[in-house]
């Protein structure tokens, strides 16, 4: 017996979020307003993602949460425990076994399948917000498909830095219509936004939900002479030796020692379990962690 309604939210709230989710899928990239609720965690800790996960979760789901690629950070652990307690769903750290994955700022390295749902936590859903603070104006700009300001911003990057300096929350155009903030994922992950999985975005404080259906065209904004570059790290992972994965820099001491390791902890573990060893790695042991 569980003292919570399934997945915490009351049924009326879930219906409201579910209606928003269906409209979000029908209008890819468009931010659907929804009546975001107070959740038992502060805004900025993934309340939007939690509400979306709660509204689309079923008892048979296997739930995974990542925070910057890692399953074992505070935000990921607390949200995972939240749903273990309020929904009684199974949880996992393995990307391949999960049916719903809530993420803060990364897309898993492993290609997602059509049986998976990826739920993003979004802080500022409006890609034009830092260029135009008024909601009335940005709404009009989306209505008129007036995205010149965003191209000016990218152009100014080039004028100032010689390249497009936006490295995360890199704006994309969805299905040739809406410019969308992919949440603060590194631009490295942008090519993975075209996916077999259903991608849902929840911004709790800003009260917006948006979505990308599977196999939807998602184009990172760029210029003909400055094409989009997802930028891969020039090093392999120090633990598993992976080339072409997104890496975190870990400072080792105060004398400049550092290492680069996969940000996706499950991807790294899986590779080490398969026998891959990086330059600073030790042979994998099942329960070593």
């Amino acid at each position: 017996m569980n003292d919570y309604n399934f997945a915490y939210l009351d049924e009326q709230t879930k219906r409201m979020i579910r209606r928003a989710l269906l409209k979000a899928l029908a209008i890819p990239g468009y931010q659907v307003p929804f009546a975001s609720r107070e959740m038992p965690m502060p805004y900025g800790w993934g309340t939007g993602g939690v509400q979306v996960s709660a509204a689309c979760m079923i008892p048979e789901d296997v739930f995974k949460v990542i925070d910057q690629g890692a399953d074992d950070t505070t935000n990921a652990v607390s949200i995972r425990k939240f749903f273990e307690k309020t929904a009684g769903v199974a949880t996992t750290e393995r990307t391949a076994e999960a049916t719903v994955i809530q993420t803060r700022h990364r897309i898993p390295e492993r290609a997602l399948t059509e049986d998976q749902i990826l739920v993003y936590q979004v802080p500022i859903p409006e890609p034009l917000r830092f260029l135009e603070p008024r909601e009335t104006e940005t709404r009009k700009m989306h209505a008129l498909e007036e995205y010149g300001l965003m191209h000016v911003k990218l152009y100014e990057d080039i004028a100032r830095h010689g390249h497009i300096a936006t490295a995360y929350a890199y704006p994309v155009k969805v299905e040739g219509r809406y410019v969308m903030d992919p949440s603060p994922i590194p631009k490295f992950d942008n090519p993975k936004l075209r996916s077999a999985a259903i991608q849902l975005f929840g911004a709790g404080r800003e009260q917006r939900i948006y979505a990308i259906p599977p196999f939807t065209d998602v184009v990172s904004l760029d210029f003909e002479d400055f094409p989009f570059d997802p930028s891969a790290a020039p090093h392999p992972c120090a633990l598993c030796g992976a080339e072409g994965a997104y890496l975190d820099e870990v400072i080792m001491d105060d004398a400049g020692g550092r290492m680069f390791v996969c940000s996706d902890t499950d991807f790294c573990r899986e590779r080490r379990a398969a026998g891959h060893v990086g330059a600073m790695g030790a042979p994998y042991e099942e329960d070593a962690a």
């Binding site: 399934f6 997945a7 049924e11 879930k14 689309c56 979760m57 079923i58 008892p59």
Partner: peptide, 8 residues
Amino acid sequence: APEAARAF
């Protein structure tokens, strides 16, 4: 709650 979740 669970049946509506599955239908959704």
